[in-house]
Design a binder for these strands. Structure first.
Lengths: 198, 198
DNA sequence: CCGTTAAGTCAGCGTTCGATGACTACAGAG
DNA sequence: CTCTGTAGTCATCGAACGCTGACTTAACGG
């Protein structure tokens, strides 16, 4: 039926797993679901990944969008927001992977992964920009805002935020980022992480 | 063994269900778990609530903390943040119910409940305070911030935010709330929702 | 054309899931 | 004390779960 290609099959399983785990969460996703989605026998999951949990760990692995840290410092927050609002996350069911993974946050492994990524790619970068005494706290408060924006947009689906474009958000991004970091910040990022809005 | 009291048994099941659903999410929680926690036979869950889903709906029902809307308008945001940071949510596993319910957000029912509560008790109240054209968007952005704070505190467990007190947060609350709502806002709320910090 | 190797399939294991119906035991009325 | 209604228990159902080992079949070098 299919051409026999180990790597291709592995990739299809990973892709289907990413989507399912993001959309439904770890517990509501069964290995049979993933296998059916990718048109592959379920037993291959254990052959290739060892267990459902190990498949999850590999499927949840994600790297920060390229170009996040390229460009003017004063546009960093705008680029981060663009990552949440504008980036193409169809691979993860249309949500930022961090937001999607909250659905599996009952498991310590997933929580640890979220913490690591939030700290490594968001808080740390923002802390370096913050002026004043409690730079860490300010950086975390700003990270919290962006996580919250992602949640209200895609999970809660609040009316205005769902329809808002990065342009609509720009002035408020400037206000909040400037206020929290204690230094002038721009609300727009000309070349954030790729071709921009489709 | 136990005294035969229908209402008390029902209440114990509800209490255990609240905790389990909050901590583990809907899918990772089994009716047998809930029954074991409350020292009650699992069959009674179906007798009293009909199904696991109906138990979830009753257990997830929550009302806004009393006193949220009492007090000066300029302290409303501070009172809301206090609801997230300072309120005693041990009944829901130590997290704000909205944050806990994100763990079950794969189910449309849960998502709808979250949306309703976010809009009804947070966005709507904040929109009335916002000055300017896009009041709805500003209100949602501020709500997103508070949701994000709850998540980074209890789910992601980011270092500074986890240890921060309402006093530490106060100046930043004032900054962000003032900036987003376009009118002067206080970062502290003297009598938010009860006895205050224990 | 054959034989080896690995990709893919199949039947099924032991367990747990949500849910059901028949049963037991206790409390209050007479 | 007995009757009766109901709170609580028991045995079990069929389906789905994660996972395993034995099997089949396609691809490829000789």
């Amino acid at each position: 039926m299919h051409k026999r290609d180990r790597e291709a099959t592995r990739a299809r399983l990973l892709e289907a797993a990413r989507l399912r785990f993001a959309r439904e969460g770890y517990d509501a996703t069964s290995v049979r679901d993933i296998a059916r989605d990718s048109g592959v026998d379920a037993t291959l999951i254990f052959r290739y990944f060892g267990s459902k949990k190990q498949l999850f760990e590999q499927a949840a692995a994600t790297d920060a969008p390229a170009g996040l840290f390229q460009g003017p410092e004063e546009e960093l927050v705008a680029r981060m927001v663009r990552t949440v609002v504008d980036h193409d996350w169809t691979e993860y069911g249309g949500e930022h992977p961090l937001v999607a993974m909250l659905r599996s946050s009952a498991h310590e492994d997933a929580r640890l992964r979220i913490r690591t990524e939030v700290c490594d790619t968001y808080v740390n970068a923002l802390r370096d920009l913050a002026a004043g005494e409690d730079a860490e706290l300010r950086a975390e408060l700003l990270s919290a805002w962006m996580v919250g924006i992602g949640i209200l947009r895609s999970v809660v689906a609040t009316p205005a935020l769902t329809q808002a474009s990065v342009a609509d958000l720009a002035p408020h991004i400037a206000t909040v980022a400037t206020g929290l970091l204690g230094r002038p910040m721009s609300g727009t990022a000309d070349q954030g992480d790729g071709p921009g809005p489709a």
